[in-house]
Design a protein around this nucleic acid. Structure first.
Length: 480
RNA sequence: GGCGACGUAGCCAAGUGGUAAGGCAGAGGUCUGCAAAACCUUCAUCGCGGGUUCGAUUCCCGCCGUCGCCUCCA
């Protein structure tokens, strides 16, 4: 089993990963709130989480990856708040929250599949864990960490020393308080006490019975409850976006550890936001892009995965259409080389030597805090072998690339296999063209090449005969 | 205002106290009936100004710029 080094947001250092249970790793990824389509920034984060999970598996760990679906808004019908996501969506679309959640969850999962993001092993829904959340709130009240108030139940942060300072710089929380301009909610004892349970308000579409009357759960409690339910009270790795550093994950830590008296999470991981054209995505700027927008720019979803792999997750990727198109070209080049080699080798690559230096360099890169850009550079080294004229090296390079793709997830083997799946007509045209070339009938040969091109098959002549590949130029598009 | 992150070639980006991976684009060349590939060569002194050091892109300070968080957003 290969060791993995990773950055931990709590200690702010890169250190060797040490699993709670030898050979296993439990991961909880904060999932999306499904009130609208997930944009590329959201999806980018799940590509990163996917690479993390694949890396551990590549290294021989038995992984349990849990990702929640937040299908409750924890929101109340209060026009002043203006942040009533699930409610707003329900009203906007004239559907109930369950239908909204279903629609956007399905779309999210479909986008993930297009990006070769593997399904998590467990995918709990918040609405199916409300009883457990209520139990957790009762426990916190019983232990003196929470108190019922007029409009809900709040966590008392003064009962958890160090609140807000696990993932954030020491002292920063005090500064936040000083700078806070938030009007104090009279129901709360402390401005930063956070809701565990909210009393229902008139018009709430999502509400449940509880010991504190009808209402809905606070945002943070669902992640504590669901992560501990499926991974245990202490688990290995918890990931989220950089925006979760405060308050979400600090709240999770406080309520979880207050309830169990145990360390909640051993490693915290946060993905930085991607920017678009050098700045933030904003609806007002019209640059909140979806996977379904790629086709219009001649790109496939997997080009976005290639682009994402080209950046470290702790630096922010700057997304531009040009960058995506560059990634598409890179992906096309890989496929072209791999498809050609696959045809020459007739589908046999042999096994990968576990001690292969290129593979070793790749493993070294990917296990160094998931350094995908460096890993890609090693894949390019393997690609050089594939492009060479030596048949043995070609087989070796191909085998290495397929091995690497267990982590990269670019579907390289599938694209290679697709090149040899020809229809009878295509096959006949290729055979006829080979005959024409042998007879030096170039006019006929060129005409046949044009015909094949029209069928999406690019033919190339090499010293070893014709090679061909499917041109994946996206034209069919993918409706939103 | 407070706290934090980032600023590397035309573009996307690795990285290190000792003169900077990889990809895309560009330029020149080889090969080729043509085309497409492939191959070879070529393309940066690391935001600005100081400081520490024998030596800094890499450490420290200041400035400028971008981004994030400061109650429900990946």
């Amino acid at each position: 089993m290969t060791g993995v080094r990773l950055y931990d947001s709590a200690t702010r250092t890169v250190r060797p990963f040490e699993p709670l249970v030898a050979g296993r790793v439990g991961i909880y990824d904060c999932g999306p709130t499904v009130y609208s389509y997930q944009h590329i920034g959201n999806l980018y984060r799940y590509i990163v989480a996917d690479v993390v999970r694949r890396t551990f598996e590549y290294c021989g760990y038995k992984v349990t990856q849990v990702m929640n679906i937040t299908d409750v808004g924890h929101l109340f019908d209060d026009a002043d708040q203006g942040t009533d996501k699930m409610e707003q969506a329900a009203k906007r679309e004239g559907r109930d929250p369950a239908a909204i959640a279903k629609h956007y969850t399905d779309h999210f999962l479909a986008d993930r599949a297009k990006l070769n993001v593997l399904p998590p092993h467990v995918m709990p829904y918040a609405t199916e864990h409300v009883p457990e959340m209520i139990e957790a709130v009762k426990t916190l009240i019983a232990k003196g960490h929470a108190y019922p108030a007029a409009d809900g139940v709040y966590f008392d942060i003064t009962t958890f020393p160090g609140y807000g300072a696990r993932l954030n710089p020491p002292g920063s929380f005090a500064e936040r308080q000083a700078g806070a301009r938030v009007e104090v909610n009279d129901a709360k004892r402390h401005p930063y006490d956070f809701a565990l349970w909210r009393a229902a308000k008139p018009g709430d579409l999502q509400q449940w019975d509880s010991p504190w009357g009808r209402g809905n759960p606070g945002w943070h409690i669902e992640c504590s409850v669901m992560s501990m339910k499926y991974l245990g009270e202490t688990f290995d790795l918890h990931s989220g976006g950089e925006d979760h550093l405060f308050p979400h994950h600090e709240c999770e830590i406080a309520q979880s550890e207050a309830a169990t008296g145990k360390l909640f999470v051993r490693n915290w991981m946060h993905t930085y936001f991607l920017s678009v054209d050098g700045g933030a995505m904003h609806k007002s700027k019209g640059n909140v892009y979806l996977v379904s927008d790629f086709a219009a720019h001649g790109c496939e979803p997997l080009a976005f995965r290639m682009l994402a792999l080209g950046v470290g997750y702790r630096k922010s990727l700057d997304f531009t259409w040009r960058a995506l198109q560059d990634a598409q070209r890179r992906l096309d080049r890989w496929r072209s080389a791999i498809g050609g080699a696959w045809q020459r080798l007739q589908g046999s690559t042999g096994a990968v030597d576990p001690a292969d230096p290129v593979k070793a360099a790749f493993a070294e890169a990917i296990t160094d805090d998931f350094n995908t850009p460096r890993a890609l550079a090693q894949a390019e080294a393997a690609l050089d072998l594939v492009n060479g004229s030596d048949g043995a090296l070609r087989a070796r390079g191909l085998a290495i690339l397929f091995d690497m793709d267990q982590v990269l997830g670019l579907g390289l083997r599938a694209s290679a296999e697709a090149t040899v799946l020809l229809g009878d007509v295509e096959r006949a045209l290729l055979d006829e063209r080979a005959a024409a070339r042998a007879a030096k009938d170039f006019a006929r040969s060129d005409a046949l090449r044009a015909q094949l091109q029209a069928k999406g098959i690019l033919v190339k002549d090499t010293s070893e005969g014709q090679r061909w590949e499917r041109v994946s130029r996206v034209s069919e598009g993918e409706p939103a």
